[in-house]
């Protein structure tokens, strides 16, 4: 399990890169899941479950309804790993 927001963001990018075959360096916050990465709903479920398992978190139904870009995923994940104050 990642311990910092940076680790968790890197883990998400690594999963997206692995799943899509697109280099992590070419994926950023504005990258669209469907339009840019071509991730349809069934595939997106697979990706989200992988993120949940790897980071040991749960993304709830309401949050899932608002995931359109990589940045949206990173924002949700960041709430589970708040930066130390």
């Amino acid at each position: 399990m990642s311990e910092t927001p940076v680790d968790s963001a890197l883990a998400v990018l690594a999963i997206l890169a692995r799943e899509t075959g697109i280099a992590a360096s070419k994926i950023n916050e504005t990258t669209e899941l469907v339009g840019d990465l071509g991730i349809d709903s069934p595939w997106a479920l697979q990706v989200l479950v992988e993120i949940e398992d790897e980071l040991d978190i749960e993304i709830n139904d309401d949050e899932v309804a608002n995931l359109h870009t990589v940045g949206d995923i990173l924002k949700v994940v960041a709430t589970r790993f708040p930066a130390p104050s």
Binding site: V34, S41, P42, L45, V49, D61, A65
Partner: peptide, 15 residues
């Protein structure tokens, strides 16, 4: 919805 871009529906069933 499960089809037609219904990720939220799929995720809810998964949960």
């Amino acid at each position: 919805s499960v089809g037609g871009g219904g990720l939220a529906g799929l995720k809810a069933l998964h949960r």
